[in-house]
Design a protein around this nucleic acid. Structure first.
Lengths: 143, 143
DNA sequence: CTTTTTACCTACCAATCTGATATGTTGGTA
DNA sequence: TACCAACATATCAGATTGGTAGGTAAAAAG
C-alpha cells in the first residue's frame, strides 16, 4: 500500500520546476539539491516528457520546464503516469480479467469506494498546492 | 499502491466466519468456496490467530471462528495485521529513519493527509459492514 | 569545428516482495 | 486407532523496486 519513489520524486521535481517559472532547470541541479540519483531522475522525467507534461531542452541552458501553469497539473495525473493506475486492488485494474466471483465478493464494494476516495484525494491537489502548501508551513509558526 | 492478496483474503475469510456465527469453519471449505489455496490461507490465518482475532480448534469439527461480534472488528485492524502499516509512503512508517529533508519536503504534508484519509476510511468499515453490504447489494435490483 | 552541456536511449542488476507449494508435526474427535 | 484440521518451517518462481552503466543526439559556446 505504498507509492514508490518514482511517483514521489516526480512530484518533487514538478514542484521545483513550478517554483522556477519559465526557466529550464537541468536535472543535475535538481538531483543535487534533492539528493536523488541523477540517472534515476532522468528515467522518470522521460516519461513525463513523452506524456507532454514537461518540455526538455538540450545543451547548455537546457533542462526541463513545465508546459502549463502549476495549478493545471493535478497530482493524480502525475502519479498515474509514473506509477500506473492507482487502483488499490488488482481486480479493479483495467487490464485485469473480469473476476467471476465479483458479484458475490464481500469486499469489492469497499474497494470501489476506496478507489473513488483515492481518485478524489489526488484530484484535489495540484502542483501549485504542493508549492504554496509548504510555503505556508514555513511561516506558520509566526503569528 | 495496492493491497495484496494477504489482506484481501483475510477480509473475505473474516466475512465468511461472521456469516457462520459461533461455528468452527475449516479452512478447507473456505478455500474451496472462495477458490483460494488452502495452504496459503493457513499462513494468513495463523497471523490472525496469534493476534487474537480468531480462535482455532484442532481435529474433526474444528476450524476457525471469530472471538468478537463482527461489528467489533474494524477493517483497519485486520489489514494492519496482514499487510503491516498502511502508510502510503515509506518515510511515514514507524521504522523509517527520520528524513533530514522532512522540513523542506514539498510533498510530505500531502502524504500525511493521505495517511489520515486512509486510516479514517478503514476505520469506518467493520466486518459486519462487509457482510451486510453485500446482502443489500444482492437485493438492490429488486424494487 | 570542437568542446561542453544537457536530454534521451538501452541494457543490466541486486535486493525485496508476492503468492504461493511442499512436507511435515501437534493436538483433538469419532 | 484412524482421521481431521490447525500449526510450523522451508523453499521457490516471478514480478517489482530502485537503482547503475554506458552510451547517442542535439544544442550552445568557444
Amino acid at each position: 500500500m505504498t507509492i514508490s519513489t518514482r511517483g514521489r520524486y516526480a512530484l518533487r521535481v514538478m514542484a521545483e520546476l513550478a517554483e522556477h517559472g519559465n526557466e529550464f532547470i537541468p536535472l543535475k541541479s535538481v538531483a543535487e539539491r534533492q539528493n536523488i540519483s541523477q540517472k534515476y531522475l532522468e528515467s522518470i522525467m522521460t516519461g513525463l516528457s513523452k506524456a507532454g507534461l514537461v518540455e526538455g531542452a538540450h545543451g547548455k541552458g537546457g533542462g526541463y520546464r513545465l508546459c502549463r501553469a502549476p495549478e493545471d497539473y493535478k497530482v493524480r495525473e502525475i502519479l498515474e503516469i509514473t506509477e500506473g493506475e492507482l487502483a488499490p486492488v488488482a481486480c479493479l485494474k483495467k487490464e485485469a480479467p473480469t473476476c467471476e466471483m465479483a458479484e458475490r465478493c464481500r469486499t469489492l464494494p469497499m474497494w470501489r469506494e476506496l478507489y473513488k476516495t483515492l481518485n478524489d484525494f489526488f484530484d484535489s491537489y495540484t502542483v501549485a498546492d504542493l508549492v504554496s502548501g509548504s510555503e505556508e508551513d514555513k511561516g506558520s509558526w509566526i503569528i
